[in-house]
Design a protein around this nucleic acid. Structure first.
Lengths: 125, 125
DNA sequence: TTGGTTGTACTGCTTGATCTAATAATACAT
DNA sequence: ATGTATTATTAGATCAAGCAGTACAACCAA
């Protein structure tokens, strides 16, 4: 499993990690049950911070691409291949898009829409 | 018509203007057809910029609380009282709230929700 | 028992980007 | 003189991204 980080890339490091691991799952390079490198080791190999790798792992586990088993290590999820295709970002975009359109049609300015959004995001901190 | 600006207030100046004028309409201090002070004069009296007052007037006209008649001046709208009760902010908040809840329930982090939002707001510039 | 490894969690910090609010200075037609 | 519009700029807040350090429970091998 070859992972490389391009600091000049527009994409943040943790996003590059997520993309590459998902890609490896899709291509079949990573199959269900395989062990992934420990957070600290991968961070060390790439010369980046452990938190950055942990952040990527956390998202990947939320998306059920990997499974963390504590001291035992982290492994590729049984349904990794199917779950690697699901793009939460796309789903979020479409939902958010319809909402913004609705508010704009109501005559609200972008400034007011932003105010409403930030207010909601703060509410349940 | 007494208007005062509190710079220490959390609310932006233009929002304070909007709130106070709407309030004056609701209480009956401002009735349909009454003339409002010119933008430049009100700005001068309050010691703030003309653009700030113009911004408030623009929103008030959009909400049909006031009517701008060019060189003739600006006046209280015929339906000002009814339109001052409508709270666009409340409507926007409830719509935005359900959307954010939906996305959070889908497992998205606040960070990702923010990314989706800013992406949409940029899309149709 | 001792020491090391695992994922996880937390706080604090720096950097850069972005947006808002407000100001400033014009300009225009009526 | 009126509302309207434009462009540019400043200051402040907010957030993402990443780094740094620390800590913990669970476990394993020596």
């Amino acid at each position: 499993m070859e992972i490389s980080i391009d600091t000049s890339n527009e994409l943040p490091m943790f996003a590059q990690l997520i993309a590459q691991i998902k890609q490896a799952v899709i291509t079949g390079e990573l199959t269900a049950g395989l062990a992934l490198p420990p957070i600290r080791q991968l961070a060390s190999d790439l010369g980046i911070n452990q938190n950055t790798v942990a952040k990527a792992y956390k998202v990947l586990e939320r998306d059920k691409v990997i499974v963390a088993k504590g001291y035992k290590g982290t492994f590729v999820h049984d349904d990794a291949k199917a779950n690697s295709v699901i793009d939460w970002g796309e789903k979020a975009l479409s939902i958010m898009d319809s909402t913004v359109l609705k508010l704009r049609d109501a005559g609200l300015t972008d400034s007011e829409i932003r105010l409403a959004f930030t207010a909601i995001m703060k509410k349940n901190h």
